[in-house]
Amino acid sequence: MRQKRYTIVFDTQKCLNCKACTVACKFENEVPVGDDTYRIWVTEQPLQGRFPHLHQAFQPSQCQHCENAPCEHVCPTKATYRTPEGVVLVDYKKCILCKACMAACPYDARFVSEHHGAVEKCTLCAHRLEEGREPACVETCPTRVREFGDLNDPDSEVYRLLISRSHYRLKSEKNTRPRLYYLI
C-alpha cells in the first residue's frame, strides 16, 4: 500500500471565528483550561482600513507538522519524531522538558503539559486517525475551514484543493517545509 502523507488544508476565508475547533481540541486531547495551554488557536488578524471600509480575516492555526522540523532537530533526546505519514509527535517518556523545541518552533505551537510531564502539541489527533476518524478540529468546524487527508491520494479532497487553488504555507521563508497548507 502506498505510504500516506497526511495534511490539513485551511480555507480561512470560511472561518467564522467561532472557536468551535479550539474547544473541541481541548476536550479531545484533554488539554487543560488555561491561556497558556493550547494546541490550536484562531487568530483575529488586524483590522484593515477605516470605518466604514473595513476588512478582517481570521486564521486558525496549529503545529504545521514541518517536514524540516526545527523542533525535531533541536531535541536532545529524540523525543520529537516524525511518523512515516509525516505527523510530528512527541514521545512524552523521552521528553526532559528542556524546552529547546519550544524556542525553536517558529509557530509557537508547543507548550508544557503538566499532565504529561512533557512538552506537547497538536498530534493531528493521531489516536483518532488510527480509528479512521478525522482530527477533532476538522470534524467539528461549522464551515469546514480545515480539510484533512492524504496528499498521496489523488482522489482526496486535499489533493483536489491543492491542485485547483492557489495556496501558501506559514513562514515558508524559515525553510521548515510545513505540511499544512493555506488556500488563498
Partner: peptide, 20 residues
C-alpha cells in the same frame, strides 16, 4: 467528549464551541 453527529441534517455534522 461530545462529537458532532456527521449525519445530522439540521446541524450538517458540525458542533460549535458551546456544544463541545
Amino acid at each position: 467528549k461530545i462529537n458532532p453527529n456527521k449525519k445530522h441534517l439540521k446541524s450538517r455534522g458540525m458542533l460549535c464551541a458551546k456544544g463541545n
